[in-house]
């Protein structure tokens, strides 16, 4: 049914750590690999070795530069379905193909009901849904519903493919509806946030913000006295140094 359950027993989801993601795209590739044979298979590729390939992926890793000058940083930003509590995609679906499971909150598409109207992909602000031109149906992240309950896998492997593939453990899986779960704890501790909360869709997945930048020399264990000698901030240039020698060094080095 399109009608969204008021409450779900669990709120399974991911917590993505933007501080440590290294942008290797391993999660995206592992996702593609697993799901090519999974619940929503196939993830069709068109013209895969041609000049203009096109394919369905559930997970995309963006790379941004945030901030300016010495305070800027590179942020790798994996983007996949957030399994919203109030999923607009489910509400707009005219057929009931898109649904949210009452037991664990996973948002899925029933490929046998989908008419391929694409409205759900328009309704999602997060770009979580990709249309398969070949099957004529909409596809999306299943939170690896065919792994997390899969008794043929080792217990440790019963997590989404992206979570198990990430080499730096930037992705965490668990029940965000349980305030005592490890990942709820992590979200609290690191002040995890929602994407575009103003849309009102209440995403379950959370993002952990990059930790404050360690610009001070002392932050790296060097003597704090060296701080003014090594201005890391572009806004904190030679003019702000009172020592004429350091000013000269800075000018010479900035040439």
């Amino acid at each position: 049914m399109t009608s969204v359950p008021h409450r779900t027993a669990k709120k399974l989801g991911l917590v993505i750590d933007l501080d440590i993601c290294v942008g290797c795209h391993a999660c995206a590739v592992a996702c593609k690999e697993w799901n090519s044979g999974g619940h929503m298979a196939p993830l069709t590729d068109e013209n895969p070795y041609g000049a203009d390939p096109l394919g369905v992926w559930f997970n995309r890793v963006h790379t941004y530069e945030a901030g300016v000058g010495g305070n800027s940083r590179t942020v790798h930003f994996p983007r996949s379905c957030l399994h919203c509590e109030k999923p607009a995609c489910v509400e707009v679906c005219p057929t009931g193909a898109s649904y949210k499971r009452a037991e664990d909150g996973i948002v899925l598409v029933n490929e046998d009901l989908c008419i391929g109207c694409k409205l759900c992909s328009w309704a999602c602000p997060y770009g979580a849904r990709e249309y398969d031109y070949d099957s004529g149906t909409m596809k999306k992240c299943t939170l690896c519903v065919d792994r997390i309950y899969n008794e043929n896998l080792e217990e440790a492997e019963r997590v989404p493919a992206c979570v198990s593939a990430c080499p730096v453990s930037a992705r965490h899986f668990g029940d965000l509806g349980d305030p005592n779960s490890d990942i709820s704890e992590l979200v609290r501790e690191r002040e995890g946030y929602d994407l575009m909360p103003e849309m009102g869709f209440k995403p379950v997945n959370k993002y952990l913000p990059p930790r404050p930048r360690r610009n001070k020399v002392g932050d790296t264990g060097a003597p704090a006295a060296l701080d003014s000698a090594a201005p890391l901030s572009a806004t904190h240039g030679a003019e702000t140094s009172s020592n004429p020698l350091l000013r000269w060094v800075d000018r010479a080095l900035s040439r």
Partner: peptide, 16 residues
């Protein structure tokens, strides 16, 4: 969109 406003302005470095 990225929620990174707390870090300052956001520019795309590399598309996925």
């Amino acid at each position: 969109a990225t929620g990174l406003w707390s870090q300052g302005s956001v520019r795309q470095l590399e598309a996925p």
